[in-house]
Design a binder for these strands. Structure first.
Lengths: 224, 224
DNA sequence: GCGGCCCTGATGTGATCACAAGGCGGGCAT
DNA sequence: ATGCCCGCCTTGTGATCACATCAGGGCCGC
């Protein structure tokens, strides 16, 4: 695709692609608060281009659920309802253990070492109270593992879920004043080293549901 | 959203929305073969509009994986690799039992009766060798059940998976000369009537994997 | 003081144009 | 006859414009 083409020849990527990447990153990392309004002309002016590519980038992000359109077509980051957050968390809890399980047979030492290093970076971001850094390294931890699953369609679907949760994530990690990396990450690493598939599934699933539990009101059946 | 607005006032929906719906339906029902090339000007001319709304509709469908862009930006329906089909089938097998399970507590008699009626229609389409009709009624069966789960985000994600499988589905149902509705649908109905949640999950999961097994080469570990 | 109404400016939508890239076919050389 | 090359013409991209819609603020009347 476009990425590969750019890797071969340094031809500038299409403008709408660049806008898309930029917005997508900002949204996924939680740099935009939920409910933040955006305008096509504003996005376009920011990069000194016309509205056309801005429209295309926004349309694409809306299709992925990263942005929402009001009835009159105004664009904003989504302000998720509790029910929707619960659904998205449940989807993560379904897909991520599956990806981890598929990655397990291919997880050699070098990968586990890299995951451990990323986990250290997560801890540093947590100590610095760097919310964006925390989200970015946390996602990098998961993505690095799941890339080994060799399941691009699943990973793509999962990333759109992360994307939808992006603006909300920021609120989560600001609320919980965390000082260290998620404790379940160590369990994930241990299960990977041991080649223990059930333990890995459980650790991943718990990591996901723990991370989002803070957003759900009643801790009643959050783990159903 | 736009649908609700249209329901209140019969104002015509936005052109790009209309194009999107039309294309989406044709793709999901398998009316377009895999690898079919489309052009923005062609889509636009078909409905006597300019390229702009056609571009938006296509961009949206590309974001959902319903269409693919070649390196030079040409648009076509995706020709899925076997690996990708397996991934999408696995995603269906993860998400659909969950949706069925969530729908179970809300599944009253009227719903089960309606599902049985739809199932009859599936059988009729099968006997008439009506591939598009078969796919449409089959999806309607599943969607009708899952709508009761009150999980719009999950259902939306699932529909994008169906969408990606659309062009390929056509090939499946032409290959297997089926004469009746999927046999697991009866098991789904029975589990719903009995309120048996594990049986329902199993029946749904089996229905999904059986339906797509014909596309996978070696029947070795398709059900892993 | 306050609530409702109207107007204006901002915003999204669709059409049209200019341009660059590339696919495909015809034509030429061997 | 066949293979290659070149040029045309289709195709996607970005810019610009006209227009309908609507949100928000100011103004008037109570």
């Amino acid at each position: 695709m476009a990425t590969a083409a750019r890797a071969l020849a340094p031809s500038p990527p299409a403008v709408h692609e660049r806008l898309y990447r930029a917005l997508r990153t900002r949204i996924m990392l939680g740099e935009l608060p939920p409910g933040r309004a955006l305008t096509l002309r504003g996005i376009a002016a920011e990069e000194r281009v016309s509205m056309t590519p801005a429209r295309e980038a926004v349309r694409r992000l809306v299709a992925e659920g990263a942005l929402t359109l009001s009835a009159s077509g105004r664009v904003s980051t989504p302000a998720l309802s509790v029910e929707r957050i619960e659904e998205l968390a449940a989807l993560r809890a379904l897909i991520e253990p599956e990806l981890a399980s598929r990655a397990l047979p291919r997880a050699h030492f070098a990968l586990i070492d890299r995951l451990a290093a990323i986990n250290t970076a997560i801890g540093e971001a947590a100590q610095n109270h760097d919310a964006v850094g925390y989200i970015r390294t946390n996602l990098e931890f998961h993505r690095t593992l799941y890339l080994r699953a060799q399941a691009p369609a699943m990973l793509a679907m999962l990333e759109t879920i992360w994307l939808q949760l992006g603006p909300t994530m920021r609120a989560v990690y600001q609320r919980m004043r965390r000082n260290e990396a998620p404790r379940h990450h160590r369990m994930i690493l241990a299960a990977l080293r041991a080649g223990d598939e059930p333990a890995l599934r459980l650790a991943v699933r718990t990591d996901v549901t723990q991370g989002l539990r803070h957003l759900l009101p009643a801790p009643a059946d959050a783990g159903r």
